[in-house]
């Protein structure tokens, strides 16, 4: 599903964020990426959605070589990959329904489709009863679930979550991880970047450890070791 061949990323002037990374993530996998801050995890996620171009190497997603993806093609890539960032927020003046609907509207979906899809994804994240609420009327954990729901509207094959639990307490964080597992069970490939030691250890899934821009560990049933 995701193939990274020898990729490196150098930010100007000469900050090497990624150095010759080779990874292969299969369809349906649930992969956690851990590592100290500043080791290139977010950079890795950004290269996967075409937000940053790599300085060397090759990226293939679902058979599509996106290494030199053109600006016009990026939107099509983004519709196939759901992303959740820690700071990727909701719009305060829109209800939860409208927030999720927004993602479909701006991609030209019809009102009819929007009426079908939005309640469906909100149901997946367990918020079908709060569609008419505004973001400030729900908890941080619930807000993050809306963000995940929004990332699901295009039925992506891959969901990238960059520290989705970063701002949450442990109970809320656990719920988010459970939600990701549930989405993974539907067949979506999950790439989770996290600092959450307990979560990673409890998941008992593949763990990739980054260190100074290189892969320093890759275990099939991994533990959070730093």
């Amino acid at each position: 599903m995701i193939k990274l061949i020898n990729i490196s990323k150098i930010y100007p002037p000469n900050i090497a964020a990624l150095r010759k990374i080779n990874l292969h993530i299969k369809p349906g996998e649930f992969v956690s990426i851990v590592g100290q801050s500043g080791t290139g995890k977010t950079t890795l996620v950004k290269t996967l959605i075409g937000e940053e171009k790599v300085s060397g190497g090759k990226i293939i997603i679902g058979g599509w070589d996106i290494t030199n993806i053109g600006r016009r093609e990026v939107p099509f890539l983004r519709r196939q990959i759901g992303v959740v960032f820690q700071d990727f927020k909701l719009l305060d003046k829109k209800t939860l329904f409208e927030n999720v609907a927004f993602a479909l509207q701006v991609c030209g979906q019809t009102a009819k489709k929007i009426r079908n899809i939005v309640p469906h994804v909100l149901k997946i994240v367990g918020l079908e009863g709060k569609m008419k609420r505004y973001p400030y009327e729900i908890s941080g954990g619930e807000q993050q679930r809306v963000v995940i729901a929004r990332a699901l509207v295009h039925r992506p094959k891959i969901l990238l979550a960059d520290e989705p639990t970063g701002n949450l307490d442990s109970i809320n964080a656990e719920e988010i991880i459970e939600l990701l597992q549930k989405i993974n069970k539907f067949g979506t490939t999950i790439v989770l970047v996290t600092h959450n030691r307990e979560a990673v250890n409890r998941l008992r899934k593949r763990v990739i450890t980054l260190d100074k821009g290189t892969v320093s560990g890759d275990q099939a049933v991994g533990k959070y070791i730093l």
């Binding site: 016009r72 990026v74 939107p75 890539l77 983004r78 719009l91 701006v106 991609c107």
Partner: peptide, 17 residues
């Protein structure tokens, strides 16, 4: 800016943005 960022990440076309 927040709308634009969301639009970009959910795959709205450049034209639409």
């Amino acid at each position: 800016r927040r709308e634009i960022k969301i639009m970009r990440l959910v795959g709205a076309s450049n034209w639409f943005i």
